[in-house]
Design a binder for these strands. Structure first.
Lengths: 340, 340
DNA sequence: CGCCGTTCTGGAATCGTTTCCAGCATCACT
DNA sequence: AGTGATGCTGGAAACGATTCCAGAACGGCG
C-alpha cells in the first residue's frame, strides 16, 4: 500500500496525494476530501524512510540521557517525550552509560539517522566542538554542563549550580553545622560537580570556614555509589554532622549507609539532597533538597529545541529556577561540638 | 558524500561499495581493502533512510515502556538497550503513559518507522489481535500480561504472577498476619493485577481465610497513588497488620503514608513489596519484596527478540524466575489480635 | 475574441541505498 | 581448443515518498 495506490483509488496523481498529506496547499477542497477519505479507509500511513530520504531529514527528535538511575531524568524524559509527541514530533530516547562518550554517540546518530534535533539530558562536559565538526543539528542541553557551548547550534537550559550549592550549604550552616561532608559530582569530577563544589566553598568561606578536601567524596550518580561514598566519608571523618549529596539518589544511598552505621537521620547526621525528584517526597525521612522544576524545564527545553528547528534566531542560554524544599532530613547538629 | 562518491574515489562501482559495507561477500580482498580505506578516510556513514527504504525494514529495535515511574523498567530498559547496542542494533525507547493505548501506538510505529522488532515492557493487557492485524513484526513481551498471546509473532517472558503473589502472601501468613491489605494492580485492574489477586486469594484460602474485597485497593503504579491508596486502606480498615503492595514503588508510597498516620513499619504494620528494584535495597526500612532478576530478564528478552528477528522457529513463552528478598519491612504482627 | 493570470493537476526526476543480472576473466577439465 | 563452472564486477532498476515544472481549465478584461 503506497501513495501510488491511494492515487489510483482516489483517481488522481501521486503529487496530489502527497500535497494532501503535507498540509494540503494548492489542492481543491473537493479532491482533498476524496483523498483523505481513501487514506482513512485504507488506514494508510506514509513510509517515513522514503519521506525522510527525500527530505534529507527526519522529523523525529532524539533524546539522549546519560546516567539512567538519576531519577531527575526519569521525570524530565517522560514529560519531554509527551510534549514533543503533542507537537507532532516522535521522540526517540537513548540511554547512555555515565562513562560513555555522549558527544561521539550523538554525532554518529546524526549521520545515520538524521534527527531534526537533539535534546541532551545530563552528561558531563561534552566537547561539541570536536565531535560535532561538520554536523549542524539543533541541540538543547538540559541540566548539563556549560562547557562547549561555543557550538553554534546549541541552546541550553541549566540550573545555576554554583548558586544552588551555595544556598544548600548555607542552609546547613544557618542551622549550626560546621563539619560538612560533600558527596557526588561524578567520578572523575565533572564540570557540574566542580561548579557545585565552588558553591560549597563560597558558602563556607562566607563564614570564615574553608572547604576541607578530605570531606568531599566524588562519586557517580547512583544509589550504590552514594552508599559507598557515605560510608567512606563517615569512617574517615566521624566528626561530620551534615552531608550535602549532589543528587537525591545519592542522598537515599547515604541515608541507608548512615543507618547501617547506627547513625540516625537527622538526629545524628543531617542530609541535604539535590534535584527534588518525586522520591524525595516519599523517602524516610522526607528529603530536604534543592528542588528543580522538572515540568518547567521540560516544557522550556522542548520550546527551545522546536524554536531552533524552526530556525528562529540564535541559540540562547537560559538559567532554570530552583528552590529549597524543606523535608525532614536536616536538623540542628546534636551537640555543637565546635560552636563558633 | 554518498556511496557514489566512495565508488568514484575507490575506482569501482556503487554495487561493490554496497557489498563491502554489508558483510563483503563476493568481493576480492584487494578491492575490499581499498574501499574500506576510502570509507574510513572520508568518515563515511551510509544513509539509513535510503538503506531502510530499500530493505523495507529498519535494523533498529523499538522498546516500548508503559508506566515510566516503575523503577523495575528503569533497570530493564538500561540493560536491554545496552545489550541490543552490543549486538549492533540501535534501540529506540518510547515511554507511554500508563493509560495510553500501547498496542495502537506500536502498530503505528510499525507502519511508519518499520523497526526490526519491538520489545514491550509492562503494559496492561494489550489486544494484539485487533491492533496488529496485518502487521508482522517480531515482538517480545517482558513482564507484561499474557492476554493476546495468540498474536503469531509474539514471544513472551513473564513472571508467574499468581505464584509469586501466592508466595508473598504466604510469607506474611507464615509470620502470623491474618488481616492483610492489598495495593495496586492497575486502575482499572489489569490482567496482571487480577493474576496477582488470584495468588493472594489462593494463599488465604489455603489457610481457611478468604480475600476481603474491601481490603484491596487497585491503583496505578506510582508513588503518589501508592500513598493515597495506603491511606484509604488504613483509614477504612485499621485492623490491617500487613500490606502487600504489587510494586516496590507502591510500597515506598505506602510506607510514607503509614508514617504520616503514625504507624511504624514493620512494628505496627508490615509491608511487602514486589519487583526488587535497586531502591528496595536502600529504602528505610529495607523492603522485603518479590525480587525479579532484571539482568536475566533483559538478557533473555533480547535473545528471544533477536532469535525471532532471525526467524528462528516459533515464538516461545517462557517464565522468569523470582525469589523472595528478605528486608526489614516485615515483622510479626504486634499483637496477634486474631491468633487462630 | 485573444490574451493573461490564477488555480489545480499529474508526469517525471530525485533522494541514496540495495540487489538483480549480465558480462568478463580466469581456471580446470575433457 | 572448447566447455562450463566460478569469482568479481558495475550498470541499472527498484524502494516510496517529495517536488519541480509544464500544462489544462477557467475567469476577467481590453
Amino acid at each position: 500500500m503506497t501513495i501510488k495506490d491511494i492515487a489510483r483509488l482516489a483517481g488522481c496523481g501521486v503529487a496530489t496525494v502527497s500535497r494532501v498529506l503535507n498540509g494540503g496547499r494548492d489542492v481543491s477542497e473537493e479532491t482533498r476530501k476524496r483523498v483523505l477519505a481513501v487514506v482513512a479507509e485504507q488506514d494508510f500511513h506514509p513510509n517515513n524512510n522514503a519521506r525522510h530520504l527525500k527530505q534529507r531529514q527526519d522529523t523525529g527528535v532524539a533524546v539522549l540521557v546519560q546516567g539512567s538511575q538519576n531519577l531527575l531524568f526519569a521525570d524530565l524524559v517522560e514529560r519531554a517525550q509527551a510534549l514533543l509527541r503533542e507537537r507532532g514530533r516522535q521522540a526517540e530516547l537513548y540511554y547512555l552509560d555515565e562513562a560513555a562518550d555522549g558527544a561521539a554517540f550523538a554525532a554518529q546518530l546524526c549521520r545515520e539517522r538524521k534527527p531534526a534535533g537533539i535534546l541532551f539530558l545530563g552528561g558531563a562536559a561534552w566537547d561539541f566542538q570536536r565531535s560535532f565538526a561538520g554536523v549542524t543539528v539543533p541541540c538543547v542541553l538540559l541540566t548539563g554542563s556549560a562547557r562547549g557551548l561555543g557550538f553554534a547550534h546549541l541552546s541550553s537550559l541549566t540550573t545555576d549550580d554554583e548558586e544552588a550549592a551555595f544556598q544548600a550549604v548555607s542552609y546547613l550552616l544557618d542551622r549550626g553545622h560546621r563539619e560538612i561532608g560533600v558527596l557526588g559530582g561524578g567520578q572523575p569530577l565533572s564540570q557540574i560537580g566542580r561548579q557545585r563544589l565552588r558553591g560549597c566553598r563560597r558558602a563556607l568561606e562566607a563564614r570564615g570556614l574553608s572547604l576541607d578536601e578530605g570531606r568531599t567524596e566524588p562519586c557517580r550518580y547512583d544509589m550504590a555509589d552514594g552508599y559507598a561514598a557515605a560510608r567512606r566519608l563517615m569512617e574517615r571523618c566521624p566528626e561530620v554532622t551534615a552531608v550535602f549529596a549532589m543528587s537525591d539518589v545519592l542522598a537515599i544511598g547515604a541515608i541507608r549507609a548512615l543507618g547501617d552505621l547506627n547513625l540516625r537521620v537527622p538526629e545524628d547526621v543531617s542530609v541535604m539532597g539535590y534535584d527534588g525528584v518525586f522520591l524525595a517526597r516519599y523517602s524516610v525521612p522526607r528529603l530536604t533538597t534543592v528542588c528543580q522544576d522538572t515540568d518547567l524545564m521540560a516544557r522550556r527545553g522542548v520550546e527551545l529545541l522546536l524554536a531552533q528547528i524552526r530556525e528562529e534566531g540564535e541559540p540562547v542560554h537560559e538559567t532554570a529556577p530552583f528552590r529549597l524544599l524543606e523535608g525532614a532530613s536536616v536538623a540542628r547538629p546534636r551537640e555543637e561540638k565546635k560552636g563558633v
